[in-house]
Amino acid sequence: MATTSLQLQPASGHGWLTGFVNMIDKEYGSWWRTRRALYHFIMWLLIINGFLLLVGFDAGRQNPWAAVDDLIEVFFRVGGLFATIGVIVATQNTVLAERELGTAEWVLSKPVTREAFLLSKLLVNGLSFIGLAVLIPSVAFFLQTLFATYLQPDIDAFLLGAAFHIQQLLFYLALTMALGTFFNSRGAVSGMAIGLVFAGLILPNFFPWLWDYTPWQLPSLAYFAAVGRALPDGTAPVVILTGLYTLLLVLLAFWRFNREEF
């Protein structure tokens, strides 16, 4: 009986996600069974909450509610910009290095689909990064505002703001991964993705209509939502379009990676 229970059971998965669970476990391990998560934990607390500490240390002295709004604006606009650049830098190598070093070739000689390979990276990198660069700094942010102003932001409003922020991060993560399937240079991958971030800070000043069709408005939406302001009329199209762009980038990465020869 005991012997029977220890018989190896062949993997039964079929279809486009064959090998996905094993890849998820491996990607999870690359964050959470190494020091990578710890480094990000410390780094994002220092960068985001450390920066807030610098600008908002005495924020609560005159008008506490205005101070909370200011801190939220810094959190989503400045911290958001850091996190966006961070997600690009942290994941620029995710696909590229595996293509270069030959680990992708080795893994893909096993029964695993290329979609499972990419999707596991997208999910684990996305969730790990969001956890470490959004959720934990958000909790720390609540504590900071409490100590600085003796007030707490409205949690529902803040969560809605965080959702916009997360959507922006997922867009840039998908973009970075898609670029990683096309290009063989880290400079090209991170340069294009970071270039798009900075283009979003400049171009809409000259072409305001771009706000309505790009993810560039998301940091403002995150701030408006988090402080409880009414969202602009064009919010829904921006959210829907950004979701579509993200999906298209993932599909583009699948398409390109399926044509990759090792």
Binding site: L8, Q9, G13, N22, D25, K110, V112
Partner: peptide
């Protein structure tokens, strides 16, 4: 990691292999 592409379990049997 390699074995788990081919076998879904049980974990002790994979470890033994």
């Amino acid at each position: 990691f390699t074995a788990r592409f081919f076998y879904q379990g049980p974990a002790p049997a994979i470890e033994r292999r």
